[in-house]
Computed example of a mutant assay.
Amino acid sequence: MIHLALLRGINVSGQKLIKMDDLKRSLEGVGFGNVRTYIQSGNVFVQTPETDPGVVAGQIRTAIMNSFGFDVPVFVIGKDDLEACVERNLFLQEEGVDLKKLYVSFISTEVPDQMITQLNLNFIEPDKIQLDGRRIYLKYHSSPAQTKLDNKWIEKSMNVQSTTRNWNTVTKLLGLF
């Protein structure tokens, strides 16, 4: 089975530097097959007979800790999950939406839809969010560099871990499955 692993916080601002060739060798060394990476921000496809995404995430996390000494949150999703992600983004239905301002945060646990009423959304305005199970769709008013709506806010407000990808990367990853 092919899984996509999204690694959080590697190769960002000079932190937790991992060369993708080294990561590939490490994961192959613990038994993953057909290991492929996409760009330097921690997007890794692996093949394994294991079907449980949580088990695969744990195996990858352990391999990274053993090889590089970093504890890195790992989010593992399948092709069906990524297809659903692309299909369910309601921001895409808006006329004239700027795809460069759309992002998706993949989160560690499912967040109930009613949680949105409990959040202080005034804090992140004019940016917008949409909850969808283990995904949060983000639409930035200007850019992610000029927002309060970041992984720190998501993690603190929703008591989850998260990793974020821009919409271009999400659609590219789907095409690579």
Rank of each mutant, 00 (worst) to 15 (best):
S67F: 00
K139E: 14
Q93N: 15
G42K: 05
V35G: 05
G9H: 00
P53H: 03
N168D: 14
S157T: 11
Y38N: 08
I77A: 04
F68K: 01
V74T: 11
A145F: 12
D127C: 09
G9T: 02
I60F: 00
E155M: 04
D98P: 09
G29E: 00
P53C: 03
T117L: 13
F123Y: 15
F106E: 05
N168L: 13
P49H: 08
K79C: 09
V97D: 07
L173W: 01
G14R: 07
L176F: 07
I2N: 11
R165N: 08
N89G: 06
L119N: 10
F106P: 01
G78A: 01
S26Q: 06
A57F: 02
G69D: 03
M115S: 14
E94Y: 05
K152H: 13
V86Y: 04
F45N: 02
Q114R: 13
A57E: 02
N89Y: 05
S26A: 15
F75A: 02
I154N: 01
G175I: 07
Q114P: 02
D81Y: 04
G33I: 06
T164D: 04
G78P: 02
L173T: 03
P126T: 06
F68N: 00
E87A: 12
N11Q: 07
G14A: 07
S67K: 10
K16H: 15
K128T: 12
A145T: 13
R61K: 15
V44K: 09
S157K: 12
V86Q: 03
L102W: 10
P73T: 08
I60A: 06
R36W: 03
L90S: 14
N89R: 06
Q146T: 14
Y137C: 06
D21R: 11
I107G: 08
Y103E: 11
P126W: 10
I107N: 07
K128Q: 15
D127P: 06
S143M: 01
I77E: 08
G69K: 00
V74H: 07
E50H: 03
V104Y: 03
V35H: 11
